[in-house]
């Protein structure tokens, strides 16, 4: 299925500086699996933050649908 992946902050290096890409991923895959298809293994990134689908935070193992927008953030701290 087709989805878009948006990256924020230091994660944009995985898209060579771009922020967004349209990608083809397996049907009904999890956010974790979708990121793997573009070479992002969140468990190996020390400062990996969280993911949101259609601008709502989800757990990394939640499943995606056709046309979803998956956003991945690094951790941010402060106030």
């Amino acid at each position: 299925m087709k989805i878009t992946i948006q990256l924020r902050g230091s994660l944009t290096k995985y898209f060579q500086g771009e922020k967004v890409r349209s990608v083809e991923v397996p049907d009904d895959c999890t956010a974790e699996e979708a990121l793997k298809t573009v070479g992002i293994d969140w468990t190996a990134i020390r400062n990996f933050g969280f993911v949101a689908v259609n601008s709502r935070r989800v757990m990394i193992y939640d499943r995606l649908k056709e046309g979803d927008e998956l956003k991945a953030y690094p951790k941010i701290s402060g106030g």
């Binding site: 924020r8 902050g9 230091s10 290096k13 400062n47 933050g49 969280f50 949101a52 601008s55 709502r56 935070r57 956003k71 953030y73 690094p74 951790k75 941010i76 402060g78 106030g79």
Partner: peptide, 24 residues
């Protein structure tokens, strides 16, 4: 001066708005 810290130069704490909005 690594990127995980320097976002604060580029955006200040406005960077939190999108994350908090998405985070609910």
């Amino acid at each position: 001066l690594q990127e995980d810290n320097t976002f604060i130069y580029d955006y200040g704490t406005t960077a939190f708005l999108e994350a908090c909005s998405d985070g609910g």
